[in-house]
């Protein structure tokens, strides 16, 4: 369970203050698959970074699995990222000098798991994404879709509660995008909560619930003047929507 109340995020540079999020409130229940949409610069990535403890926020409260995260220090945040959260990035972010096995191994080592345990998890995760046979390949030897599947395996191997994905299909053609989404759906059906930022309305429609971010706030999808995209992606999960602002 993820609960953000009245979160604001201000980026300050010498000259400008950017209010990337303002009075942002959202709850995501365990097992949900939430798609986050919104125009460029609206604050989607900022939200995801705060949700994933990659960045701190300026004000508001954020409770993750019953834990108020605002008081955590850097090490504790690292540990929670490692244990509870799996990240999937638009440009895959695999480590180019490590083979697939070692890439999936990275977060497991940070968790300090024993070699045998790690090995089993890596095999299972790569099996799940259908790349177990290519364990010794380097990322550069794979297609984009395959690389993203490895990234999913890496996120999955640690058994996270939450899978956070920022435009996971943004660098993929539509066929590969669909495959990746099939995979995410499969993972969600097994119980992992997924929050996915996407520009693709068709893919967003496959989530339980769509959240639209406009100008740093969650907008009500039922509002008549909402973004055309949100009308298109409105679906049966709409009751779950945080009324937000």
């Amino acid at each position: 369970m993820l609960s953000m109340q009245h979160i604001s995020k201000v980026y300050r540079t010498e000259l400008v203050e950017t209010h990337a999020l303002r009075d942002f409130s959202l709850e995501v229940n365990d097992g949900e698959f939430v798609a986050v949409t919104g125009p460029s610069g609206s604050g989607k990535t900022t939200f995801l970074n705060i949700a994933g403890l990659l960045e701190s926020f300026t004000s508001g409260t954020y409770v993750l699995d019953g834990l108020d995260v605002s008081g955590l220090n850097d090490n504790e945040r690292s540990r929670i990222r490692n244990q509870k959260i799996g990240f999937i990035f638009q440009s895959f972010n695999l480590i180019p000098d490590l083979d697939l096995f070692d890439n999936v191994d990275v977060p497991l080592r940070y968790r300090g798991l024993k070699a045998a345990d790690r090995k089993e998890r890596i095999h299972n995760a790569l099996e799940t994404v259908g790349l177990a046979s290519r364990m010794k390949h380097l990322p550069a030897q794979l297609s984009g879709g395959q690389q993203q599947r490895v990234a999913i395996a890496r996120a999955l191997a640690g058994d996270p509660h939450f899978l956070l994905a920022d435009e996971p299909t943004g660098n993929l053609d539509s066929l590969m995008a669909r495959q990746v989404l099939d995979l995410l759906q499969e993972i969600n059906e097994k119980g992992t909560t997924i929050i996915m930022v996407t520009h693709d309305a068709e893919l967003a429609r496959r989530a339980h619930r769509n959240v639209q971010v406009l100008d740093g706030q969650v907008t009500d999808l039922e509002a008549p003047d909402s973004h055309p995209l949100t009308v298109a992606v409105d679906n049966d999960a709409a009751d779950n929507l945080s009324a937000g602002a």
Partner: peptide, 16 residues
């Protein structure tokens, strides 16, 4: 830089 950020994102501490 990006690799380091990614490692941090997936659980590396500063010390790691």
């Amino acid at each position: 830089t990006k690799q380091i950020g990614t490692r941090r994102a997936i659980g590396a501490t500063r010390r790691d």
